[in-house]
Design a protein around this nucleic acid. Sequence first.
DNA 1: TACACTATATACAAAATGTATATAGTGAGG
DNA 2: CCTCACTATATACATTTTGTATATAGTGTA
Lengths: 117, 117
Amino acid sequence: MKDPRPKLNREHFLQVCLMVLLKEKSNYGYQLLEDLEPFGIDSESLNIGALYRSLRKLENEGYIESDWIDSDQGPQKRIYHLTDLGKTNLNDRMTFIHHRRQSLENLIHQYEKGDLK
Amino acid sequence: MKDPRPKLNREHFLQVCLMVLLKEKSNYGYQLLEDLEPFGIDSESLNIGALYRSLRKLENEGYIESDWIDSDQGPQKRIYHLTDLGKTNLNDRMTFIHHRRQSLENLIHQYEKGDLK
DNA sequence: TACACTATATACAAAATGTATATAGTGAGG
DNA sequence: CCTCACTATATACATTTTGTATATAGTGTA
């Protein structure tokens, strides 16, 4: 009964980015923020608080899990990894990402079409 | 002093789509909703009320203007057209649309990279 | 013991969104 | 004429999302 209509707001996009990163490699919040840069997300555009908020949401839904590990220096880190449920969910969400890409392609094409006249 | 950091939420994306459509051809709200379909927006996903809300915002900012015209049948229609200011603004927003496309490309690429292993 | 740094987390006001409903003109059926 | 369906534009309001600030806490160092 969840997600009758998929959304792609800031929060959802961030969640997909995080899951894609965690699919590749288990990691913790602070480092994940840096790895989000290729997806147009950085500490300028995203407050670190919002990142942890997203991570907890994903964990509450069972898509990721975490373990505390000691750090060489500084406080403990909470290392997240993608669950099997998360992999399945990510796969679903990626089809929606493809649709969004197509929408952007269509938009760009339509805009540039006008310039050729 | 406006838009120190451009955003791309639902509202902004809709505004860009509307301006792209109006760049091509002046039109009215109800018809615009149908023409939004290639951009992944339809009457299922977008309430018609939100569409008029966006049109009025664009008009308040001077990016589009409107004239009332009589209809063959039914009530009057408010026909919108893109202003010169709107054209300039749209051009700016399109660079951001290109960035977003690149972000999606990177995300898809990163996701599929993992599948090849 | 004070400060800077890394890391995680929460609180709350502001903005965006979803949903329902209002207003209003036209034409068709009874 | 009266009511209903249809097209078209518009607004009100509760909920959700987002932005911003701040809290908590461990470690190293001066």
